[in-house]
Design a protein around this nucleic acid. Structure first.
Lengths: 193, 193
DNA sequence: TAGGCCATGTAACCGGTTACATGATTAG
DNA sequence: CTAATCATGTAACCGGTTACATGGCCTA
């Protein structure tokens, strides 16, 4: 999914400026689709306008650059529907944490425990985010996906809590050294093959 | 996570050619981390060798280009461990299906049903893939992540089966009829702006 | 005999990020 | 006084994909 479609989807829900779109896509409810930067959004919006899929209305402000408020056009909505009508591409799931887990025997138990802690707190933050979204009752589609998200995140949190011990057990003992945590390069056992 | 680290992780588990690495990363057990193409893998391997993190052994073949079999070096293993020792980045989850669900009111019930079917068959294929990996008992880290994967995919399949009706109910009737929905902020293209 | 598998590699392209440029207003 | 927030935009860069080039062997 590209930034273009993301902009259309956000504008479908209501008009917005480029600045606001970035916020929604990196902190708001659209962060589950794309996290786009200014450098991607502003040009995309300009192209969308040139193509007649959105319109702009400029609102002057004292001091600041004037807000350029974008709205979707019927053509834009048609384009969005066309994009959504194609069979969905496979979900993308990429996990650095799972790569760590897969290579657990290369790491120490302490490192594994820390990785699990990091991942758990990330998941809990995400869960809190989802709960906040679920509280907003304005959009039924959003409500449905928050329930989906809650189920997925909940499963992962429960799994981690139940299985962290068996993961950590795969790690090496800390080699003699004082392991201070995220420290400098550690390590290696060496080389014997 | 970049292709470089992916190559190291794969080579850590055993020597391989560029061709084999691509297969593992797009069909095998490493597809959960990166799906890299030849155009990314071959240059990465060359750089890795220049940096002394892997070694190559060439094996001539009649007809075909000779196989270049790469092995990880102690320095490469150290680099991999260093990469894995950093706190894991947030998992990436991107779902075109969820974007469809979020915009359910824009689509017809039939379209939503089809999207759910597509997604379900993708999930079932992935589950089969995971079960196949779980059967291989050689790698304890791999075994752990297959259990994780099974829990995640299982949750999604169950959720979709239980909640597909409520999603489809958000859709419009196939064009032409009166809109059966509750009508709260319905999204039919209202031309006048 | 057509197409897929094996096996390597290069080059053009592209979608996106990062960093830069600008600058008033408000909160700590 | 500093840092963050608002607000727009450009340009250099980069990691990756797609398509190309080459070609023998095996299967349908």
């Amino acid at each position: 999914m590209n930034v273009r479609t993301l902009c259309l989807a956000i504008l479908q829900a209501g008009e917005a400026t480029g600045y606001e779109i970035r916020k929604l896509s990196s902190e708001g409810e659209y962060s589950y689709f794309v996290d786009a930067s200014f450098g991607a959004i502003y040009p995309a919006l300009a192209r969308l306008e040139a193509d007649g899929l959105v319109t702009v209305r400029e609102e002057a402000q004292s001091g600041r650059p004037s807000r350029k408020i974008y709205s979707i056009t019927p053509a834009g909505r048609a384009e969005l529907v066309a994009q959504l009508s194609a069979p969905p591409a496979e979900d993308v799931f990429r996990s650095e944490f799972l790569l760590i887990a897969m290579n657990a025997p290369l790491l120490t138990r302490a490192q594994l425990a820390e990785a699990v802690n990091t991942r758990l707190s990330q998941l809990e933050a995400e869960m809190a985010h989802i709960e906040a979204l679920a509280a907003r009752k304005d959009n039924p589609g959003l409500a449905w996906i928050t329930r989906y998200g809650r189920a997925c995140i909940g499963t992962q949190i429960a799994f981690l809590k139940e299985n962290r011990a068996s993961l950590e057990a795969l790690g090496r003992d800390a080699d003699g050294g004082t392991d201070g945590g995220a420290g400098a390069g550690s390590t290696l056992p060496a080389a014997a093959e």
